[in-house]
């Protein structure tokens, strides 16, 4: 954990957005060029800690995400490293064209850090969900997309995103999710993490669904099925080697994401598999619908964003593999 003043205890006992807030302070201490931009959600995106520590480097644009993103481009041309924060639905959709034209097209060193992604604003309803952002962001050349799976990975991703030269979209939920990484975990952009070895089927997951994938692998193990679990924390550039290896070595793939199955991680994986090592790919995710309103747990069950869905998808992928091999 070079360069961060966060203790492991801090990280292990905190929600993603609380850890994110402290990671911002840590990177602000280390990198003087970092400035924080917000759009009247500096408090709920947990930028308030940074704002308190570095008031002169914090800029609230009010409720104006499009302007904030375009202004971030201006900051970047002057040698600053702007971290533009907002809820994921606003950063990816309200400011969508600004992200493409002002940040990605000129390849500017802006860090877009989106909170409250997926259905984490559960009871807030569909207006505040973001199940489309990965699909949108994936289509922008030059952009790196990172979806951390737990608090530790969030801290590391913030640091690595700032050290990386070029635009980054960092996608976070807001809640407490189980830690899936150990303390000595090394985070490298574009290099996925094998959470569990296995030869019968591969589950390639990102974000909150990594913990579900591990739980699914536990269940499958009890039935004698040996599932590989890959944390695909970087959606772009995708770790093609790991995807091809999963296809060749296990012959059956399940993807899992808190996002529409249209345009997300699943389609990214399926694209690589179909071009390089054809094998069945079953996508677990939001099935091209708006998610409605409800408490997060209930909504997850209703939408099938669960380990149980991954288990049944894994069995389906394996049966497709065996029917093909007959």
């Amino acid at each position: 954990m070079a360069g961060t003043s966060l203790s492991m205890k801090d990280i292990e006992n905190s929600s993603i957005r609380d850890v994110f807030g402290r990671a911002l302070v840590s990177i602000g201490e280390r990198v003087p060029e970092v400035v924080l931009l917000g759009a009247d959600a500096i408090g709920s995106t947990r930028g308030a800690l940074f704002a308190k520590q570095f008031p002169e480097r914090t800029f609230n644009f009010g409720i104006a995400e499009q302007e904030m993103v375009a202004a971030a481009a201006g900051f970047a041309t002057c040698g600053k490293i702007p971290i533009a924060t907002a809820y994921a639905f606003l950063l990816s959709m309200r400011a969508c064209e600004q992200v493409r034209t002002d940040i990605c097209y000129p390849n500017l060193n802006v860090k877009l850090m989106a909170t409250h992604a997926g259905i984490s604003m559960a009871t807030g309803g569909t207006t505040h969900h973001a199940t489309e952002d990965i699909a949108i962001m994936r289509s922008f050349a030059n952009l790196t997309i990172i979806v951390p799976a737990d608090a530790l990975e969030t801290v590391k991703a913030v640091e690595v995103a700032v050290e990386h030269s070029g635009p980054v979209y960092l996608r976070m939920g807001r809640g407490e999710i189980p830690n899936v990484h150990s303390r000595d975990y090394e985070f490298v952009i574009g290099r996925s993490t094998c959470m569990r070895a296995g030869g019968d089927v591969s589950v390639i997951a990102c974000g909150t669904m990594v913990a579900e994938a591990i739980a699914a692998a536990d269940s499958l193990e009890k039935e004698g099925i040996d599932a590989r679990v890959v944390n695909m924390h970087t959606i772009k550039p995708l770790d093609q080697e790991a995807v091809i290896a999963a296809a060749l070595e296990t012959g059956a793939i399940v993807t899992a994401e808190e996002h529409n199955i249209v345009g997300g991680l699943g389609e990214a994986v399926a694209g690589v598999v179909s071009e390089h090592a054809p094998a069945p790919v079953i996508r677990v995710g939001v099935r091209d619908c708006y998610c409605g309103i409800g408490p997060e747990d209930g909504l997850r069950r209703k939408l099938g964003l669960t380990s149980e869905s991954i288990v049944s998808a894994a069995k389906r992928a394996m049966s497709l593999k065996s029917s093909r091999n007959r």
């Binding site: 400035v35 499009q66 375009a70 202004a71 481009a73 002057c78 040698g79 600004q98 034209t101 002002d102």
Partner: peptide
């Protein structure tokens, strides 16, 4: 100094530059 052509955005970028200065 800035890639432009999509109208309405240059003033925002210029504000970023002016604040940075």
């Amino acid at each position: 100094e800035m890639s432009t052509g999509s109208l309405g955005q240059g003033l925002s970028a210029a504000c970023g530059m002016a604040i940075a200065a």
